[in-house]
């Protein structure tokens, strides 16, 4: 197990999480893209030691060969995350067209109830014992 490859995965994931927690939609999307990179790389890394490409005839009997299955899985995962993130970009685009804004807004109805709830909490606390 290569320490460094696990480190790359972890750092990409960590930075992705940081961006994900922002309020700006485009940074959130970039965060998701980084996390997707991290996950796809992880699929590759768990295949084990780096080796020759798994193409028959391209390696000898003594060579260590990279594990082909995680590669295939990563291939699928890469394409899928690309498709879905493209759609999210279209959402961002649409959102900008509608609101001229790049912020992720809070839910209106939830905010209303949260206010009500807070007001009630305050009343409870201030109620004479």
């Amino acid at each position: 197990m290569s320490f460094f490859s696990a480190l790359i995965v972890a750092v990409l994931f960590s930075v992705g999480v940081y961006l994900l927690l922002q309020r700006t939609l485009s940074r959130i999307i970039l965060g998701l893209a980084l996390m997707a990179h991290s996950a796809n790389l992880l699929l590759m890394v768990v295949g084990g030691r780096a080796g020759k490409a798994p193409i028959l005839g391209a390696f000898g009997p003594e060579d260590s060969v990279a594990d082909p299955l995680p590669q295939a899985l990563a291939l699928t995962a890469i394409v899928i995350s690309f498709g879905v993130i493209s759609f999210l970009l279209a959402i961002a685009y649409r959102s900008w067209v509608l609101t001229q804004d790049d912020e992720v807004e809070d839910d209106v109805e939830d905010a209303r109830i949260a206010q009500l709830g807070e007001a009630e909490m305050r009343r409870w606390w201030s109620r004479p014992k």
Binding site: F13, L20, L25, I28, L32, M35, A36, S38, A39, N40, L42, L43, V45, V46, P70, L73, A77, I80, S81, V84, I85, F87, L88, I91, R94, S95, L98, V104, E105, D107
Partner: peptide, 23 residues
């Protein structure tokens, strides 16, 4: 669009975590 964003982002996170889990 606003609520769809919430939906998609959270599910995308879940999907990414799923890949990580599979790995």
């Amino acid at each position: 669009i606003r609520s769809g964003m919430t939906y998609i982002i959270i599910n995308l996170l879940a999907s990414t975590l799923f890949v990580v889990g599979i790995a």
